[in-house]
């Protein structure tokens, strides 16, 4: 499937270094499928949790104004920590189709790409402006264009960046890698047979 442009309302999730334990607590990894995980996103800081009820502010994922959002806005080093794919899986199952942030952890970025969830970066200033705009007007629609490299909303148009391979994979529809990796399997055998630890020392 080719992914070129994502359009919809946005959900701002402020904070640097948001780790995957926060996005998806480990107890929800106790399952043999990814189904239904979206119900537990950020569970330990949302309404009804001890920390959430103390927080004094509505958690963005509880805020009805952001319901139905398809673009997640984040700050720096989003998705750090554990390699659990459960985190991007849950976000995607919760309706998120693209994440726009200052920077991403590498494993989270890779896991997201593997399931066709683009993580694109924008400058801290642009992120700040986008977040402020969405917080003022949660119904404002954003458009993330991977081919043009832009994120646009009423009044704001900013440049977004995505490593070339990731953009090509998403835009070209080749982000589901297994087929590509298996396409010329004879070459894999050849490389393996030249490795002394595989062939035998």
């Amino acid at each position: 499937m080719k992914i070129t442009r994502i359009e919809g309302t946005a959900l701002p999730m402020r904070g640097d270094d948001i780790d995957t334990d926060r996005i998806m607590p480990a107890r929800y990894l106790r399952a043999v499928t990814f189904e239904g995980l979206e119900r537990y996103l950020f569970e330990d800081e949302r309404a009804g949790s001890a920390a959430g009820d103390r927080a004094g502010a509505v958690h963005p994922f509880d805020n009805p104004a952001y319901r139905g959002a398809s673009i997640l806005l984040v700050n720096r080093n989003f998705g750090c920590g554990s390699s659990r794919e459960h985190a991007p899986q849950a976000l995607q199952r919760g309706g998120i189709r693209a994440i726009v942030g200052e920077s991403f952890s590498e494993i989270f970025f890779g896991n997201s790409l593997m399931i066709g969830l683009p993580c694109v970066t924008a400058s801290p200033g642009d992120i700040s402006e986008l977040m402020a705009q969405v917080e003022r007007r949660p119904d404002v629609r954003l458009s993330v264009d991977l081919e043009a490299g832009t994120c646009e909303t009423a009044g704001v148009r900013c440049a977004i960046a995505l490593p070339g391979h990731a953009r090509d994979a998403l835009v070209g529809g080749t982000w589901d890698t297994t087929g590509m990796l298996l396409a010329r399997y004879d070459e894999v055998g050849l490389v393996a047979s030249r490795l002394p630890y595989v062939a035998g020392f």
Partner: peptide, 26 residues
């Protein structure tokens, strides 16, 4: 270099994995 199979159409490198360790959760 020793583990490179080829450059993929996506521009990524296909790398042979010499050891894959597996556990129950992922």
């Amino acid at each position: 270099d020793r583990h490179t199979v080829r450059t993929l159409p996506s521009g990524q490198t296909q790398i042979f994995i010499g050891l894959h360790l597996v556990h129950e959760v992922t």
